[in-house]
Simulated scan of single mutants.
Amino acid sequence: MSGEDDSSGWQLTESDPGVFTQLLKSLGVPLIVDDLYSLDPATLSDFQPIHALVFLFKWVGGSSEPSSGGQYDPEFPGFFAHQVVNNACATLAVLNALGNIPDLPKSEQLTDLINFTVGMDPQTRGMTVTSADWLREAHNALSPPSAISLDGLGLPKTSEDAYHFIVYLPFMGGVYELDGLRPSPVQHGPYEEKGEGWLSKAREVIEARIGTYPPGALEFSLLALHEDPLPLLEKSLVEAQTAGNHAAAEEIMIRLANENAKREQWAFENSLRRHNYVGFVHALLAAMAKSGTLEPAKGVAKEKMKVRIAKMKERGESAMDED
């Protein structure tokens, strides 16, 4: 969850599969992340096996009771860390998932960190995790701090919506919700191994949670933490070509091309996130001022801002001054 205070150097993280996949890569974990736009069985089957679901939602505070009918499990024997600093919830959600996936390859640093926290209570574990400089650097790698500071300008403080990452995953025959702002993991009951397995139960829980928001609310994002399909596709391609199955080979090549194109797009977008655009923006504004196009552009922007402010006021939201 984001906030104004106590970020301890942790930057906001974008809910983007390319960002999360790069984080996993830096942690030595051979998994990837993809956006989920639906929880229907057909969509989920494209990403199997899925190890966990990362859920982003608008945090509104309120009741300390478990969500969607679950029960707190204070005796949870797995890995669970509290969120003790703001802006760390994305990486914390990932760690709460990775720490409970059996036999998962990890970097030596991550393995040592998880092993070091064995036996700690969630609060102490959260403090230990977020004090790891190397982990914070990996988290911040694609979320560089702003190069422009508005401190000292006397601007009015505005409250922004807070968003929070949590994780759902199977553990010891049940579906668990791991939320670093909750006192304990939430157990949502057992699941059947047959059929969709744990995902069927997770769908019920997530849909019930979304149902508590006003109709049409879109303040959600869902990501699937799953096996990287590239190694299996490459192996299947070799087998199909060796067997002379040209139709299967062609289909696999299309899937490989799509996967590789997706990785290239992620790499391009991540390179943009790392870039500092302050110099470019300054040069652009200077060029517009010199050519006489800056003032007309400001006029258009002010008109658009008036419309935006009016819509915000209609919805009962706090709005900034027009100037």
Score class of each variant (00 low, 15 high):
residue 287 A to C: 11
residue 264 E to H: 13
residue 109 Q to D: 15
residue 98 L to S: 09
residue 252 I to Y: 12
residue 94 V to D: 00
residue 240 A to F: 10
residue 247 A to I: 15
residue 255 R to D: 15
residue 67 S to F: 02
residue 312 M to Q: 15
residue 178 L to W: 02
residue 234 E to Q: 15
residue 195 G to T: 07
residue 28 G to Q: 07
residue 256 L to D: 08
residue 63 S to F: 02
residue 276 N to L: 02
residue 293 T to A: 11
residue 296 P to D: 04
residue 191 Y to G: 08
residue 196 E to F: 05
residue 15 S to E: 09
residue 59 W to L: 10
residue 12 L to A: 12
residue 62 G to S: 05
residue 23 L to K: 10
residue 45 S to H: 09
residue 227 E to T: 14
residue 178 L to E: 00
residue 34 D to M: 00
residue 219 E to S: 11
residue 65 E to G: 01
residue 186 V to W: 01
residue 257 A to L: 13
residue 65 E to D: 08
residue 201 K to R: 15
residue 153 L to I: 03
residue 39 L to S: 02
residue 160 E to T: 08
residue 276 N to G: 03
residue 247 A to T: 15
residue 71 Q to D: 06
residue 240 A to G: 09
residue 294 L to Q: 00
residue 172 M to K: 09
residue 296 P to K: 05
residue 279 G to Y: 06
residue 187 Q to G: 09
residue 244 G to A: 11
residue 289 A to Q: 14
residue 268 F to P: 01
residue 304 K to L: 12
residue 24 L to T: 03
residue 236 S to R: 08
residue 306 K to N: 05
residue 241 Q to H: 07
residue 291 S to I: 06
residue 69 G to T: 04
residue 233 L to R: 07
residue 56 L to Y: 06
residue 208 A to L: 06
residue 235 K to Q: 10
residue 234 E to R: 14
residue 298 K to L: 14
residue 303 E to R: 13
residue 51 H to G: 07
residue 203 R to V: 11
residue 165 F to P: 04
residue 40 D to I: 04
residue 129 V to M: 10
residue 129 V to I: 15
residue 287 A to D: 15
residue 76 F to K: 03
residue 70 G to C: 01
residue 31 L to Q: 01
residue 274 R to S: 11
residue 5 D to H: 11
residue 312 M to H: 12
residue 273 R to G: 01
residue 39 L to V: 07
